[in-house]
Design a protein around this nucleic acid. Structure first.
Length: 593
DNA sequence: GCCGTTTTCGGCCCGACTGTTTTCAGTCG
């Protein structure tokens, strides 16, 4: 059984975590952490490459001789000797201490060495017995802060869905808008980058009156406690222990601060490196010329001027992960990411015929009122019995109704006859070929047997992709964010097969799904695979989730030309016709050249 | 530990805040 990239990365993650306790050179630790990211992001199986004599792992940027050797050992033996040794000297439960806010590797190491604190329970005990406050570098306040922090560390899920964060943002925005002292207001951080889950919230304001703003912020009803308050920065926790940071900056620094607090950390490190090459210094206050005796402010009021000072075009926040935004940076490529207005159709939704709450007519009306020009009705197939999945007879009956309704609509809107056909556990599609052949749009999807092996699930999906009637694979990994891991599937093979057969993959816009993710979308783009962004709506309101799918698409660097349901109906139908005649090999990549 | 049209050695992003400090270390983002 071959190790997956995340499994390999996990070993180096643990190695870095444990080394931090020993006071190891921080740059060495950073190098390990960097390799974790590189391995996770890598599109091909690193284990396979490690066994491939003709491939040199050090050709992967971020992987040097040392890590390459360790990967080989890991792949050959399934173990990392250095990690085994460290685990023998430091109990893994010590790593839990790092989850306490304000607790880093240094303090944790002191607690472990001096007081033999090995777990959060030990730590609470030591605090209650007043043993912590007498340690060198600790004190009464620190001991109390740790005690308070243990509650937070114990809180299960720290991250929340982007959609949940967005609701909090809207409430806080409304509250802050009432403060006269605030001249400008923007939410930054992973929220602004559109990350699928958000760990904290960063609020940035321009004001001459910091204390007044902070007082007003402190009155937000959802705040439980203020953890930090200085001249320019204030941190609070909500009643659900969710952290919100507020920063007050002068106008001339707003752009620099916005860029800085939007991140990501990796993006910022790269930006500062670029600045340094140009004899500039970048911080949250601006860009400064360091070539002379005195540092001189060069720019910082807007993000655009900050990026331009560094010789770059403004980069959409969704791309700021230090992945493709620097290598593809130009005004042209940065400004053409897909946005909400580009979607003309929605190709995955349910009705009262199965587990939806809206009737066929209601779904049509809801889609029209949201500016869409066409939809595909894709109810469940018979195997999905809990949702009253459609038998061939019921499906054909629904398709007759759709024909009737289309006739009434008289070309003003078009309903496509679709189906979300289950990919059966034993393989094969849940409905007969001759039935599927009568539809306009066929999604294949896995619902059962999600615990099967990587080989089994991958083979089921590959078979569906090769099936002549299947157009696209819905929610291709089956993950539920913060709840359920993706099923074991070799996405690389799924994608190469999609590319070969001209089939599409879905971004499921449900805020709990959002698969494919950003990195997977970049890989799909490299292979020229068409993407569809679908709501998977189970009610009329369910259509509103499309914007989350758009955000994910932007994170994946998708332009409208990569997304099938940006096509006008005529062109979409042409694509489908071409695909069925077996000639489609992905949609045009011409303008991406 | 990684990396190199300023380097194969010597760098590696930078500032705010807190608490414990007599001038700074640790943590965080």
């Amino acid at each position: 059984m071959s190790l997956t990239n995340p499994q390999i990365a996990e070993h180096f993650q643990e190695l870095a975590d444990l080394l931090e306790f020993g006071g190891t050179n921080p740059f060495r630790i950073r190098a390990y952490r960097n390799s974790v990211r590189v391995i996770e992001d890598y599109p091909e199986s690193v284990a396979d490459l490690a066994r491939n004599e003709s491939f040199d792992l050090t050709d992967i940027p971020g992987i040097g001789d040392a890590v390459a050797k360790k990967i080989k050992v890991l792949v050959d033996t399934g173990e990392l000797p250095q990690l085994q040794e460290l685990k023998a000297t430091i109990p893994e439960s010590v790593l839990d201490l790092l989850r306490v806010p304000g607790m880093g590797p240094k303090k944790a190491a002191v607690l472990y060495k001096e007081l033999d604190v090995q777990s959060l329970e030990d730590l609470a005990e030591a605090c209650r017995n007043d043993r912590v406050k007498n340690l060198k570098g600790f004190g009464a306040k620190t001991q109390q802060a740790i005690l308070d922090g243990i509650q937070i560390a114990a809180a299960a899920n720290e991250r929340i869905y982007w959609a949940t964060a967005d609701e909090l943002v809207q409430r806080l925005r409304t509250h802050l808008k009432k403060c006269k002292a605030i001249q400008e207001l923007e939410f930054a951080g992973s929220y602004r980058r559109g990350k699928e889950t958000v760990g904290d919230l960063d609020v940035l304001v321009v004001s001459q009156a910091g204390p007044e703003v902070m007082d007003h912020f402190g009155e937000f009803t959802e705040i439980a406690s203020v953890t930090v308050r200085g001249d320019t920065k204030m941190s609070v926790r909500t009643k659900k222990a969710f952290q919100i940071d507020l920063r007050v900056v002068p106008r001339e620094s707003f752009g620099a601060a916005l860029a800085y607090f939007t991140g990501s950390k990796e993006h910022n490190v790269a930006l500062r490196g670029l600045a340094k090459q140009k004899q500039l210094r970048l911080n949250e206050w601006g860009v400064f010329d360091t070539s002379g005796e005195e540092e001189v402010y060069v720019s910082g009021q807007t993000e655009t001027e900050v990026y331009e000072t560094l010789g770059l075009s403004w980069i959409p926040p969704e791309l700021r992960e230090n992945r493709i935004e620097f290598s593809t940076n130009s005004a042209h490529t940065m400004n053409r990411l897909i946005d909400a207005n580009d979607l003309l159709g929605d190709l995955h939704m349910h009705t009262t015929a199965t587990d939806g709450k809206g009737t066929l007519e209601e779904m049509v009306e809801a889609a029209r009122s949201r500016g869409l020009q066409y939809i595909a009705i894709t109810d469940h197939s018979q195997r999905v019995s809990m949702a009253r999945g459609l038998t061939p007879d019921r499906l054909l009956e629904q398709w007759d109704q759709i024909d009737d309704l289309n006739a009434k609509l008289d070309g003003s809107f078009r309903i496509l006859k679709g189906i979300e056909c289950d990919i059966l556990e034993q393989g094969g599609m849940d409905l007969p070929d001759e039935v599927l052949a009568q539809g306009d749009w066929v999604l294949g999807a896995i619902h059962y047997g999600q615990q099967q092996s990587l080989e089994q699930i991958t083979e089921r999906i590959l078979e569906a992709i090769r099936h002549p009637e299947v157009d696209a694979i819905a929610h291709p990994t089956g993950r539920l964010l913060l709840k359920r891991e993706p099923y074991a599937v070799d996405l690389r093979r799924v994608m190469t097969t999609c590319a070969e057969y001209g089939k599409a993959l879905e971004i499921n816009a449900n805020p709990m799904r959002l698969d494919l993710n950003d990195i997977q979308l970049m890989h799909a783009t490299e292979l020229g695979i068409p993407i569809v962004i679908n709501s998977d709506a189970h009610s009329t309101d369910g259509l509103d989730v499309l914007r989350y799918g758009i955000l994910q698409a932007r994170r994946g660097g998708l332009t409208p030309s990569r997304v099938l349901n940006t096509l006008p109906l005529e062109d979409f139908l042409k694509w489908r016709e071409t695909r069925k005649s077996g000639t489609a090999r992905g949609i045009s990549t011409e303008e991406d050249a």
